[in-house]
């Protein structure tokens, strides 16, 4: 059974492949009356606000499964602390920001979150301890290093993106 899981901070999603075994399991799950448990028949039924979180969480899952040499050469696999940072960061950002973002592995085991917005872009480098970032557009630039990953700093980043990049 192949499953893709995503924890968006609000909900926990598991995506099942459309196999006979899974259909039987899903049929059983649908009989459960637990109101906290919902079965969607397709990703289209998931709310827009959650879709981007699911997409980015799927990227985290993919990156976390990479083995050393994922680039075809000597890249290190992603370190657990950077993965944790990525999960925390994605959970704190809104879908308005995430829809323009992608997560990438780095050869040195860190993770990048890169954004390509209508009016600019950014890159956030998650090294497992703190993060560094650069925001840029034609008229604006902001950068910092050694930033602590917390709600206050992420809210500040989200505000910057909303005002300068969207």
């Amino acid at each position: 059974m192949t499953m893709l899981k995503a924890n968006t901070g609000q909900n926990f999603y598991v995506r099942f492949e459309n196999t006979k075994e899974n259909l039987a399991l899903l049929a059983y799950l649908q009989t459960l009356r637990n109101k906290n448990f919902v079965v969607f028949n397709s990703p289209a039924e998931v709310s827009e606000s959650e879709k981007e979180h699911i997409r980015l969480n799927a990227q985290i899952e993919k990156i976390s499964k990479l083995k050393a040499g994922w680039d075809g050469n000597v890249a290190q696999k992603a370190n657990k602390k950077s993965i944790k940072q990525a999960e925390q960061l994605i959970a704190m950002l809104s879908e308005n920001v995430l829809r323009y973002c992608a997560l990438f592995p780095s050869n040195d085991s860190s993770i990048y979150l890169q954004g390509n917005f209508p009016k600019g872009g950014f890159v956030i480098y998650l090294n497992g301890e703190t993060f560094s970032y650069v925001f840029k557009n034609e008229n604006f630039k902001e950068s910092a290093a050694g930033v602590e990953l917390n709600e206050k700093n992420i809210k500040k980043i989200e505000n910057t993106i909303s005002k300068k990049m969207l």
């Binding site: 075809g72 990048y112 890159v123």
Partner: peptide
């Protein structure tokens, strides 16, 4: 770009790692 992990088709971004230097052993 030697790996699909160097390009994201949805957001049309190249992984900045494509221009990094690495350790070869």
């Amino acid at each position: 770009l030697c790996s699909p992990l160097y390009y994201d088709e949805q957001t049309r971004q190249v992984n900045i790692d494509a221009f990094d230097l690495r350790m070869l052993g």
